[in-house]
């Protein structure tokens, strides 16, 4: 199979999964005790009002008709209207998405930047103090609830030392980039951005830092014991080349897959991190929509989250297939 066909196949599978995501989200509304009418109708609404609302929301139609309508409007980018705000769900969800993406990307950058060097050092200095420290850190990191870590970071670095802000998002990353050429002071904008994003990114990224450190360490140990490494050393390659060009490269391939699969955990973590830091993203929107019983917003958010997961994993597979051409033939 060529790489092009492999990618085409993955995209097609992805479309299937997104269709499944949409169908489950559609059905969620029907396993709810108390129909959607209750969420909209006033408490003392009489029968006629309720029927009128049902007609307006299309709830009097048979299930398959409602499902068909739902799919058709989704394809047109229409996810309905918020019960509570009267705003279009699509607009609402996509206005919150950038903040969450920014947080998730920042956390991933923190995680990858710290974990891979740490994992490599830990594996190459096995059973030395630095390895013990890294092992301890990664064990604690995968065992710490990120929301608690966030609160403790706020306590020490924001409340006591005043280095960072306790909550909110003052500027978007895009605005920082714009300040490079724009009239706004770049340094000032950058500092403002860092003051807000650092703590949530660290709180969210710690679990992944720990996880990838563990994976990199055990992967490196595995690879360094393999015959090709011995062969590379035997023919006199510098140790740095053996470690980083040969062993590390092979270690990173499975790490990328795990990162893709863990994206769900990352988004789930972002939801709760947003709650801790009052970060105005999709997570805050999801929690508010549940508390307000604003089902269309919840459905829209779930669809966007599920679809992003599928998209990122297709991307991961594409990267993977160029790093390791063998997967194409599986």
């Amino acid at each position: 199979m060529s790489q092009g066909r492999f990618i085409a196949k993955r995209v097609l599978q992805g479309v299937g999964v997104v269709w499944g995501v949409v169908s489950i989200v559609f059905l969620l509304r029907f396993i709810t005790p108390g129909s959607a009418i209750n969420a909209v109708a006033p408490l003392d609404a009489d029968r006629e009002t309720r029927q009128a609302i049902a007609r307006e929301l299309g709830l009097n139609q048979p299930l398959h008709v409602q499902y068909g309508d739902y799919l058709v409007s989704l394809l047109q980018g229409d996810m309905g209207f918020s019960y509570v705000r009267g705003q279009e769900v699509t607009t609402l969800v996509f206005s919150k998405l950038p903040a969450t993406v920014e947080l998730a990307v920042a956390a991933t950058v923190v995680a990858i930047g710290l974990s891979i060097p740490l994992g490599v050092v830990s594996a190459t200095r096995r059973n030395q103090p630095v390895d013990w420290l890294a092992t301890l850190f990664s064990l604690a990191g995968i065992s710490t609830p990120n929301f608690w870590l966030g609160i403790m970071l706020i306590l020490v670095l924001a409340v006591q030392l005043g280095i960072f802000q306790t909550s909110g998002r003052a500027v978007a990353a895009v605005e920082v980039a714009a300040a490079v050429v724009g009239p706004a002071s770049f340094v000032k904008t950058l500092r403002l951005w860092l003051a807000h994003i650092t703590l949530p990114a660290v709180a969210l990224g710690t679990y992944f830092t720990a996880l990838v450190t563990r994976l990199t360490r055990s992967g490196m140990l595995d690879e360094l014991g393999k015959p090709y490494v011995r062969a590379a050393r035997a023919k006199g390659l510098p140790e740095a080349v053996v470690r980083y060009k040969h062993a590390l490269r092979n270690t990173l391939i499975p790490v990328i897959t795990v990162l893709g699969l863990q994206l769900g955990t990352l988004i789930g973590g972002a939801v709760i991190t947003e709650a801790v830091f009052s970060w105005p993203g999709l997570g805050t929107l999801v929690i508010r929509s549940i508390n307000l019983r604003d089902w269309p917003v919840l459905q829209g958010s779930l669809i966007v989250i599920g679809t992003s997961f599928v998209l990122v994993n297709i991307l991961v597979d594409v990267v993977y297939s160029s790093l390791d051409p063998r997967v194409v033939n599986d």
Partner: peptide, 21 residues
């Protein structure tokens, strides 16, 4: 296929959605 679809929902998000419903 069903497993692929359920993996697309983060467990925390799915859990709060179900409890909310």
């Amino acid at each position: 296929r069903f497993a692929d679809v359920s993996l697309a929902f983060p467990s925390l998000v799915l859990a709060i959605a179900l409890i909310g419903l």
